[in-house]
Amino acid sequence: MFSESLRDFRRLGFRHVLLQVLNFASVIASGLMMWKGLGLITNTESPIVVVLSGSMEPAFYRGDLLFLTNPASEQYKTGDITIYRTGDRNGPDIPIVHRVIETHDMPLCAPESFAFTKPTRRQPKLPAQCTDKVPRQLMLTKGDNNYADDLELYRGLDWLERKHIVGKVKGFLPYIGYVTIAMNDFPQLKYALLGGLGLLALIQRE
């Protein structure tokens, strides 16, 4: 079988190989375009994510696929399931899928001291001019399967804010994402799959 395909390969020549490489590149490019286009429409950096942990069981299991949106004009609400990242100050920056259980919508242009980490009995002064379009929002999240809220996961932050949130879950598709988890757990599988696909693309006749 292999000697036959090798002979085919020699017969078809250099131009054919180039054409196949071009085809392969266009497939990858169109995939990337669809991904980025979807990201533009939904306003998130990753419109589709795979669930990696069991903290939202029994709703979402490892390997389920989630579709996200992040409309810029909409505030988050309690009950929304968000994907957030709090930055990698000490540890890996893993996106977390948890539900919002508290929202506190600040008045427009509320100053930084409005974060209420300290008590304020006096009415804080609002700045004379401000450029905020959307009010600041403080949030607290919790995994449905966890006993405590996420304060410990915020790495020193008191509240979650919009800038930490990648998007909220709109749609759900079970199991499909398990392929990527399997590929991460067994890297050999990933290389075998990629190598196989590349080889097939090169030696296929049409």
């Binding site: 029994p58 309690t78 259980i101 929202t103 506190h104 509320a110 409005f114 304020t120 804080p124």
Partner: peptide, 16 residues
Amino acid sequence: MHGVQNTVVIWDKIIR
């Protein structure tokens, strides 16, 4: 009193 709008979940339940 500062005009902050709050929504707080005080109880929840999962029904399967």
